[in-house]
Write a protein that binds this DNA or RNA. Structure first.
Lengths: 219, 219
DNA sequence: CATAGGATAATTGTATCCAAAAATCTTTGA
DNA sequence: TCAAAGATTTTTGGATACAATTATCCTATG
């Protein structure tokens, strides 16, 4: 409809951002077919940047693209989600352990501030950005850019389900409390407690995501 | 020069394969600038599939692409390589542990066969493919496709340096022996031994890769 | 002589157009 | 009526052409 005009380097990356948000927000559902022409018309661009954006989302794990058959919103298998959470436990556990001794008053204040913002999020996109921001701030002092990138990559294909189950308008069952207890454990320098809370946090999220994903059915 | 004709779904993926091999083989060096027009002419295609291939290699970590500024072969920092190997230790250690009980006579025979082929490899590309094949066969029984994909992804940006240091024509300092001892430990079901050997194997590779990478200098 | 400014060239990003493949519809035969 | 085969439409992959940005070279000026 309206021509894209974002503070992005290129049309393709701006499109990728928009489409990513559309999928995360649930505007596109798993299995939905994304037509190049339709998207191009909708955003007032040609199909070339659309194709580049779709390729980008494909290797983020948000789309399944088949040769000459179009791009569909991916529907992760329960087993794959399970495996992703096992990997997250490893990677995020390592990041948390390394970050623990590196936090200071400034970073802790920032963590609390981010948590406040997160709890005020009133849509799924805001919630996802907020939760990623919180965890990134939690792990950033580890000084491990590659692991942090991996953290983002592992979340990408499942954040839409987390947001659906934990985001605004959902029963949050102590999820915010876990974040605050994480901050407290980090502030106290209690590595064991922090690890335990993180593990519990991720296990709970895993269960909720698995439920949200299977709820969608195999339609 | 000659038009691309590979058993690949698309021109872009065939190109990506070729360029990946060219980088792994050392035909392109870190810092080298890949011109779209030049590559297009060389392979007898237009710039469109070239761009898609470059984007693919970018998110494999082989290229650094800057807006309007071209694609350069990436030059990983020592710190990044270090971090990658720490991640490999986590992921591959987990895969090995899970695979251990799942191996049988057939898979062990296959492992030995792959190791034989690997030791016969007479160029870098063959060595890389062989080493990946060996480790994939070692980890495959774990039944963890996502972790296996992560394993490949972590190797991608550093395999060219491993091949340079460990491949054909290099002093292999007991590297093949470690593979054979791995097979033996797996055959014996000795989890602790297998972990120890794998850790040693990766630590040795890390040192060799760091040396090969810094050798290239910051030209 | 060094350097800042601008014109020129080279290169990338995007739009338009054509070819190849897949999906859909129609027809035909049993 | 149903299924299989062929024509038509739709959609994607790739080539060509154009616009936007960056790099290079030349000149002017202190």
């Amino acid at each position: 409809m309206s021509t894209i005009r974002l503070a992005a380097a290129t049309t393709a990356s701006a499109l990728a951002q928009r489409l990513r948000e559309a999928i995360d927000a649930g505007h596109w559902q798993p299995g939905d077919l994304l037509r190049q022409e339709q998207i191009a018309a909708e955003y007032g661009v040609s199909r070339i940047p659309v194709r580049e954006a779709l390729a980008q989302l494909q290797n983020e794990g948000l789309l399944d693209v088949a040769h000459y058959r179009g791009a569909r919103v991916s529907r992760p298998r329960a087993q794959e989600i399970d495996e992703i959470f096992d990997l997250r436990l490893m990677v995020e556990g390592d990041l948390l352990a390394r970050a623990l001794g590196q936090h200071d008053q400034r970073s802790l204040r920032e963590l609390k501030r981010l948590q406040d913002t997160l709890e005020d999020a009133d849509d799924r996109l805001g919630w996802i950005a907020g939760d990623i921001g919180f965890h990134e701030a939690l792990y950033a002092p580890a000084g491990r850019p590659r692991s942090l990138a991996l953290f983002r990559q592992l979340r990408a294909p499942i954040d839409r389900f987390s947001a659906q189950a934990l985001g605004p308008g959902a029963r949050k069952q102590g999820w915010a409390d876990e974040h605050r207890r994480l901050i407290a454990a980090v502030a106290a320098g209690d590595a064991a407690a922090a690890q335990t809370i993180l593990e519990h946090h991720l296990q709970a999220t895993r269960a909720v995501v698995l439920a949200a994903c299977s709820e969608q059915g195999d339609n």
